[in-house]
Computed example of a mutant assay.
Amino acid sequence: MMERELLEQLNIWHEQDEYNRIIEHIQNIPESDRSYELVGQLARAYNNTGRYREAIEQLLSVHERGTYDPLWQYRLGYAYAYIASYEKALLAFERANELLPHDDSTLEFLEMLRPKAEKMQQDLQRYEAERDEWERRGTLNHLRAASGTYTPATFWEQSDYALDNHVSEPFDEEMIVSIERELGYKLPASYIQLMHTQNGGVPTLTAFPTQEETSWAEDHIAITSISGIGRVKMYSLGGEFGSRFMIEDWGYPDLGIVICDCPSAGHDVVMLDYRFCGSEGEPCVVHVDQEDNYEITYLAANFEAFVRGLVDPDTFEIDEDEQDS
């Protein structure tokens, strides 16, 4: 099939939402034989199936030609936007707008991305300051010892529900490596330490203070569980309703690992966020709200800070009562 005819067929499949068919067909063509246009079509199909990182990989493989192509910039910005790399997305859409001014779709993305990119920069500054303070104090990865609000013996709530749905069997190093490979990120040492006390479950303290309002409350978020390391229990990291399920089926941005469920039954979650540290680094912790266009709220510089910052939700109810009196 000549390439012109092939591109026409790919566009027909695109109109019919046959994105996987497009991917399969182009993947059967050797990489060395794929033209710039075919790479773009493959990236578009990846974007339309939520495989944004693969779309970025394809687009960057032809970046020298794409730099001056507004459609290439648009597709790249689209992919970055949906993994919450807002600053990179903004740069791509700004370049697309320079190359092809006044495109309505590009302008819509620019309007949406500018405040998100600004907030991401503010979160980065807070993360770096808090990370540096933790490193200066030298207290990271000490969840084996009781201090502050964290006490190993009383951290977990014991219930049949937790045992049935959340608490996984003890794990070994092989399981850690396997889960990390599946998720694409290195698990924080403090998280692994906590899972050695109990491998997932329902904590007794379930509220975490915030500096900004969320859909849950003006000054805090709430969690219902912390995922364990495994695949058997449905809410474990690799389980039926684990991290990849929430990203691939619920549309959460692929910025890291969904680590905590919330009372909304999937409509907001807590995630380990690797955008500032890379897939091998020490992630910060964020709240992501599906009901508010996947708004990201920074919580803590690392998982240990998040665990030690959990408090009884009645704390906030008492504060509200005191304000009313």
Score class of each variant (00 low, 15 high):
residue 4 R to W: 05
residue 8 E to L: 09
residue 13 W to L: 06
residue 14 H to W: 14
residue 15 E to T: 09
residue 18 E to H: 13
residue 22 I to S: 07
residue 26 I to T: 00
residue 26 I to Y: 00
residue 27 Q to A: 12
residue 29 I to H: 11
residue 30 P to F: 05
residue 31 E to A: 10
residue 35 S to E: 08
residue 36 Y to T: 14
residue 38 L to F: 03
residue 42 L to Y: 07
residue 47 N to Q: 05
residue 50 G to V: 08
residue 51 R to N: 13
residue 53 R to T: 08
residue 54 E to T: 00
residue 56 I to M: 10
residue 57 E to H: 13
residue 59 L to T: 04
residue 59 L to I: 04
residue 60 L to Q: 14
residue 60 L to T: 13
residue 62 V to W: 00
residue 62 V to M: 04
residue 63 H to A: 14
residue 68 Y to E: 15
residue 68 Y to C: 11
residue 70 P to L: 11
residue 75 R to F: 04
residue 76 L to V: 07
residue 76 L to H: 07
residue 79 A to E: 12
residue 80 Y to H: 15
residue 86 Y to C: 05
residue 87 E to G: 09
residue 90 L to S: 02
residue 97 N to C: 09
residue 104 D to P: 08
residue 110 L to H: 06
residue 110 L to C: 03
residue 114 R to F: 08
residue 115 P to F: 06
residue 115 P to A: 08
residue 116 K to P: 02
residue 118 E to I: 08
residue 119 K to L: 11
residue 126 R to Q: 13
residue 126 R to N: 03
residue 127 Y to M: 02
residue 128 E to H: 07
residue 128 E to P: 05
residue 153 A to T: 09
residue 153 A to Q: 10
residue 153 A to H: 01
residue 154 T to N: 09
residue 156 W to D: 04
residue 156 W to K: 08
residue 157 E to A: 13
residue 159 S to P: 09
residue 162 A to N: 03
residue 165 N to A: 06
residue 167 V to D: 07
residue 168 S to V: 12
residue 170 P to Y: 05
residue 170 P to F: 11
residue 171 F to D: 03
residue 172 D to Q: 07
residue 174 E to N: 13
residue 177 V to E: 15
residue 179 I to P: 01
residue 182 E to H: 08
residue 183 L to D: 01
residue 184 G to E: 03
residue 187 L to K: 06
residue 189 A to L: 10
residue 191 Y to G: 03
residue 193 Q to N: 02
residue 194 L to A: 01
residue 196 H to A: 09
residue 197 T to D: 10
residue 198 Q to S: 12
residue 201 G to H: 05
residue 207 A to G: 01
residue 207 A to Y: 03
residue 208 F to I: 01
residue 210 T to D: 00
residue 210 T to M: 01
residue 211 Q to Y: 09
residue 212 E to V: 10
residue 213 E to T: 15
residue 214 T to L: 07
residue 219 D to S: 09
residue 223 I to F: 03
residue 226 I to K: 05
residue 231 R to I: 06
residue 234 M to V: 14
residue 237 L to K: 05
residue 240 E to K: 15
residue 244 R to P: 09
residue 244 R to N: 12
residue 247 I to D: 00
residue 248 E to I: 04
residue 250 W to R: 09
residue 253 P to W: 02
residue 253 P to L: 05
residue 254 D to W: 02
residue 259 I to T: 12
residue 264 S to Q: 12
residue 264 S to V: 02
residue 267 H to Y: 01
residue 269 V to A: 15
residue 274 Y to E: 03
residue 275 R to L: 12
residue 277 C to A: 04
residue 279 S to A: 15
residue 279 S to P: 10
residue 283 P to V: 01
residue 288 V to I: 10
residue 289 D to H: 00
residue 292 D to T: 15
residue 296 I to S: 01
residue 304 E to L: 04
residue 308 R to Y: 04
residue 309 G to N: 12
residue 313 P to N: 09
residue 318 I to T: 14
residue 319 D to R: 15
residue 322 E to T: 15
residue 323 Q to L: 15
